[in-house]
């Protein structure tokens, strides 16, 4: 699989480490134990379009949010996780 890195262009997925569902960006700030449990352990795990975190460990060490189809492995896009998180109002 080739991941279209927003800064570096097409990069081999082998350079990245897969870090799971991009919803993990939305870490709850505190909250009750049920909220934390749901965040840590439960996943949507869809068959089809999935937004997910890939860490460019063998590259520029950036985190990406990659949109990928889990049924076909087709990669539909990639953006910097930093931008996604800021758009959600995190790390102001």
């Amino acid at each position: 699989m080739l991941i279209p890195h927003p800064l570096l262009g097409l990069r081999d997925a082998q350079e990245f480490v897969y870090m799971g569902d991009a919803a993990l960006i939305g870490r709850p700030d505190g909250g009750d134990i049920a909220t934390l449990h749901n965040y840590l352990y439960l996943r949507d795990n869809p068959a089809g379009e999935h937004r997910e975190l890939w860490y460019h460990e063998q590259g520029d060490r950036s985190w990406l949010v990659v949109t990928r189809n889990t049924a076909t492995h087709e990669i539909l896009g990639a953006e910097l996780a930093r931008d996604v998180a800021r758009a959600k109002g995190r790390s102001k």
Binding site: D21, N38, L42, R43, D44, N45, P46, A47, T70
Partner: peptide
């Protein structure tokens, strides 16, 4: 491997990734 898909019919999210 289809656990999450089938249990989604019951509105459940599972501690599982496929």
């Amino acid at each position: 491997g289809s656990s999450s898909r089938v249990m989604a019919h019951a509105g459940m999210r599972l501690p599982i990734e496929s």
